[in-house]
């Protein structure tokens, strides 16, 4: 038994589309330590969001899901719908990418938080409202008692994201999944939102999964990283080790494409990710990899221990020797 609060093993998600089976996630392992921040990084389409939407049970019916998602020792995949629903928003909650559309425009902000509280706790509306105001204060919204009575359109983008976070932590969840929480926001606001997430993590001991395509964000707040590519983990480990001595060519590509000071957006690596309708039999990154051999394309590489990281590159040893020499 591991000490992970959220443990995902061999998660697979396939969408049945008109064009065929889209294999969005092809065997992903994730371990989230209690009270820590795990960064999940990858390009769009790498399956990072889909993996966690699957864990939340929020994927459409056209998705078939297999594998295991253990939250606090309880299995969620294949569990009764009612049970999954009771977990959702109570033990496991989510912050979405676009705060402008994540809140229902016709309900007061406070009421939307109250709804979250009352769907899992037996609390009077009066108390729930007081708690909602308190939550708004925690996420740094000034005059929370007045703001609670306003509607989403009266808030700026950053303020709305704070509201979404307040809502997500309303029931003291064990794990907070933040799906690109800063992507839609201005650079200055991004830093504030990250601070709010860190505050929540430190104050309540909430474990956070921070999904992003921005390595700068990972470097700033995460404790450990999980790099995803073409629906699989390619590398995972502590932030320190990952930035210090990455073992996978894809991770290296990501890091070397980081511009120096200033802009911290990813520069794309040459080539395109594989077509997930017909994914390659071997390492998904091999077609774009400068170090690929025939063996790389032969079969799917498993995740294995290499130094203090987990890597899926079968040539990790060779590549280290080469980069050292």
């Amino acid at each position: 038994m591991s000490d992970s609060v959220l443990q995902i093993r061999d998660l697979r998600v396939t969408f049945n589309t008109q064009m065929g089976e889209l294999r969005a996630v092809r065997g992903v392992d994730v371990d989230v330590a209690p009270g820590k921040i795990l960064g999940v990084v990858g390009e769009s389409g790498s399956g990072k969001s889909v993996s966690f939407l699957a864990a939340m049970g929020l994927l459409p019916k056209s998705a078939s899901i297999s594998g295991s998602v253990m939250l606090d020792g309880q299995e969620l995949i294949g569990a009764k719908k009612k049970f999954v629903r009771s977990v959702r928003g109570r033990l496991l909650s989510m912050v979405f990418q676009d705060p402008l559309s994540a809140l229902n425009p016709v309900h007061r902000v406070g009421d939307q938080i109250v709804e979250m509280i009352q769907s899992h706790q037996d609390m009077s509306t009066h108390d729930a409202q007081k708690r909602a105001v308190q939550l708004l204060e925690i996420v740094g919204i000034p005059q929370p008692d007045e703001r609670a009575l306003q509607y989403p359109h009266e808030f700026s983008g950053g303020m709305r994201q704070r509201v979404v976070i307040a809502m997500a932590i309303a029931n003291d969840p064990k794990v907070l999944i933040a799906d690109e929480p800063t992507t839609a926001l201005d650079v200055t606001v991004q830093a504030q939102i990250l601070e709010v997430i860190q505050t929540v993590q430190q104050r309540f001991g909430t474990a956070v999964v921070l999904i992003t395509h921005d390595l700068g964000v990972i470097a700033r707040v995460a404790d450990s990283v999980n790099v995803m590519y073409a629906g699989r983990n390619v590398e995972s480990g502590s932030v320190q080790s990952m930035f210090d001595h990455p073992s996978h060519p894809y991770t290296r590509g990501l890091l070397s494409s980081l511009p120096h000071e200033g802009v911290e957006r990813l520069q794309p690596i040459a080539g395109f990710p594989p077509n997930m309708l017909a994914p390659p039999p071997g390492c998904g990154f091999a077609p774009r990899c400068a170090f690929a051999t025939d063996a790389c394309s032969a079969e799917l590489p498993a995740l294995r221990q290499f130094d203090d990281l987990l890597t899926s590159c079968i040539r990790a040893e060779d590549l280290r020797i080469r980069s050292n020499s």
Partner: peptide, 29 residues
């Protein structure tokens, strides 16, 4: 198809409540 429907579901509300309070309520406008 809107995002706030997903938010409502992520709160762990029942499907009926999601449909009525967030879906139908907004669709009536």
């Amino acid at each position: 198809n809107s995002d706030y429907m997903r938010t409502a579901r992520s709160k762990g509300l029942s499907e009926f409540r999601v449909l009525m309070r967030h879906g139908v309520r907004n669709a009536l406008i």
